[in-house]
Structures are given as C-alpha cells and as structure tokens.
Amino acid sequence: MIDLPRWGLGAAALGNLFTVVPDETARATVDACWDAGVRYVDTAPHYGVGLSEERVGAALRDRPRSEFVLQTKVGRLLVAGPGTGRDTDGFDVPDTRVRQLDFSAAGVRRSVEESLERLGLDRIDVALVHDPDDHLDEARAGAFPELLRMREEGLLRGVGAGMNETAPLTAFVEEFDLDVVLVAGRYHLLDASAADGLFPAAQRAGTAVVLGGVFASGLLASPEPPPDATYRYAPAPPEFLDRARRTAAVAREHGTTLPALAVQAAGAHPAVASVLLGMRSPEEVRRNAELFVQDVPPAVWDALRREDLLPAGMVVPGEGDA
C-alpha cells in the first residue's frame, strides 16, 4: 500500500471551480499548504481544463520532489476548443481547451504524458481513472491494464480510481491490483454508505481509501449551516439541513464545531488513509489545518449516537483503534 499523508489538498478549486481564483491566490494557497505540512496534492486535467495542473506544478516545481505525493487523473484528454466562450462544466475558464473522454490504453498513456507537461514535473506519483461511470467496460479493457503496466515500468508509484459512486469502485478494487481509490461524498457525517462494501473490499485488497467531499459539498463546512447551504452541489434538502444543524448544536454544547467533527470523523475509519480538502485561499488552508488538531471531546460522539445523528457504518475517533 502506498504511504499517503493524513490529509491533502484537493485542487479542483485552483482550476476556478465555480468562481475565479486569481493566480497569486492559487500560488499562495499551495504555499500555505506547504507551510501547514500538507504533502499530498490531488489534481486532474478536468479541473479548469488543465489550469489546476498548471498552477499546482508551478507552485511545487521548486519543492523537494521526494517530499510530496502528487496525484492526478486520466480519462479526459484536453484538445483545442473554439475559444469563443467559457467552459460549460463548472469551471470559470475560457473554452480554449475542451475535454475529450478517452479511457483507452493509448489515451491513458497520452494523458499522463500531457499532464507531466502541464505540471512541469518529472513524475506523477499516483494516477487515478477519473469518473468512468458511463465507460466502465472501456476502463476495464484499456485504462486500468495500461496504468498497471505503467506502474510496472516504474512510471507511476500508485494507480487507482476516483469516483462518487461506491459500487463500481468496489468492483474495480476486487478486479484489479489498485493502490488507491478516491471516493467523494460517500463517507461523512450525513452518509457513510462507503463503509458498507467499498471499505471492507479495500481492506481485504490492501488498497488505500482517500476521501473527498467530507464537508458534503458545503453543508458541514460551517459551524452553523446557513439556510442556503448546499448538499451534493444542490440546495440542501430540509431533512439534511436540520440534521446538520442538530449535529452542530451538539458540537457547540461540547465546545467544538461541526467542521472539526466532519474532518475528524472522516479520518477515523481504519480503511481511510487520507482526507482531501478543497481549498482556494491561504485562510481556508489555515482554518482547515486547525480542524485536525482541534480538541474534540469523546463525549460528543456519545451524544451524537444517543441522538441518532451518526449514519450507520460511521466509525468515530477512538473506535477505529479498538
């Protein structure tokens, strides 16, 4: 199993996810991560149609290469776009480049080569097949075997997959010798469904699980969830908003915060190797770094269980080591 740091930077926001992040702020964010001890960075060609990779590479290029783990993804090649408008897939960037889905063996090798060019680095540590939801057979036949060959050739240290859905990830873990799986939005204080099948399969296979979306795309990110909070990138349903607010109230009663509970619960399961947090400013980096060391009294977890506010399958701090 590849050794991953406890937490890392999810660099989608540095590709101008939803809103523009100025170049200098993106650089300062990566620098703040380094100062906070973050040594694991996850990016992808999809994020800002290459912008995230370019910014991450520029910020890490002068850092000691042996001291950080760099992860990117395959499955989307970048080709010339019309250059007449803006990206239509959630990133505030011009459409001078567009994505071309390609989960073939040749596409995967080309994707890694082009990512290295954008990053300006000599190697990528981990490459993940990125959201092959509608291309599972192509990924099985092309992407995964090719990544495994590249690992054998010494071009990659680790290979795996990154998705939102747990069923295909579980199947991939059982079918291929994967080092890492990244699952987003399926293990947090409102939904621990990844613990049902994926986590046991990963533990049996010796595959490291990395979590994204532990703030449930915003609902768990504030000490008091606002009325316009989002869940799964949409307005939070009333029942989830109420549950998050009740959890936040229990946190306050015990002298801690909802975001601290979110990150510390996410990393407590023994299958979880690392937690990725999306950050777009140095202030967010410093705030999130504090969440991992914030004092969370054990009594808060007991209180949440009594109130039936923890999802089935959730392992809280102290339980994973038992």
Results as ranks from 00 to 15, higher is better:
Leu4Asn: 07
Arg6Met: 00
Arg6Phe: 02
Trp7Leu: 09
Gly8Phe: 08
Gly8Arg: 11
Ala12Arg: 03
Thr19Leu: 05
Ala32Cys: 08
Cys33Asn: 11
Asp35Thr: 10
Val38Ala: 12
Val38Gly: 14
Tyr40Ser: 07
Asp42Cys: 11
Val49Phe: 09
Val49His: 14
Gly50Trp: 00
Arg55Lys: 05
Val56Arg: 09
Ala58His: 07
Glu67Val: 04
Lys73Gln: 05
Val74Trp: 04
Val79Glu: 15
Val79Trp: 11
Ala80Tyr: 00
Gly81Tyr: 09
Gly83Arg: 10
Thr84Met: 04
Gly90Arg: 13
Gln100Cys: 10
Gln100Met: 15
Asp102Met: 08
Phe103Tyr: 15
Glu113Tyr: 09
Ala127Gly: 12
His130Ala: 05
Pro132Ala: 15
His135Gln: 15
Ala139Gly: 09
Ala143Thr: 03
Glu146Leu: 05
Leu147Ala: 09
Leu148Lys: 03
Leu155Asp: 02
Leu156Phe: 03
Gly158Val: 01
Ala161Arg: 02
Met163Trp: 04
Met163Lys: 02
Ala167Asp: 15
Ala171Met: 08
Val173Gly: 14
Glu174Trp: 00
Leu178Pro: 05
Val183Trp: 11
Arg186Met: 14
Tyr187Glu: 13
Gly206Asn: 07
Ala208Thr: 00
Val210Thr: 15
Val210Asn: 09
Gly218His: 04
Ser222Thr: 12
Pro225Phe: 01
Pro225Glu: 01
Ala236Ile: 07
Ala236Glu: 12
Ala244Ser: 04
Val250Arg: 01
His254Glu: 02
Gly255Gln: 09
Thr256Trp: 00
Ala262Phe: 03
Val263Asn: 08
Gly267His: 06
Gly267Thr: 05
His269Leu: 08
Val275Asn: 05
Leu276Lys: 04
Met279Gln: 15
Ala289Phe: 08
Leu291Arg: 13
Gln294Ala: 14
Gln294Trp: 00
Ala299Glu: 15
Val300Asn: 04
Leu304Glu: 11
Glu307Tyr: 04
Ala312Ile: 02
Gly320Leu: 01
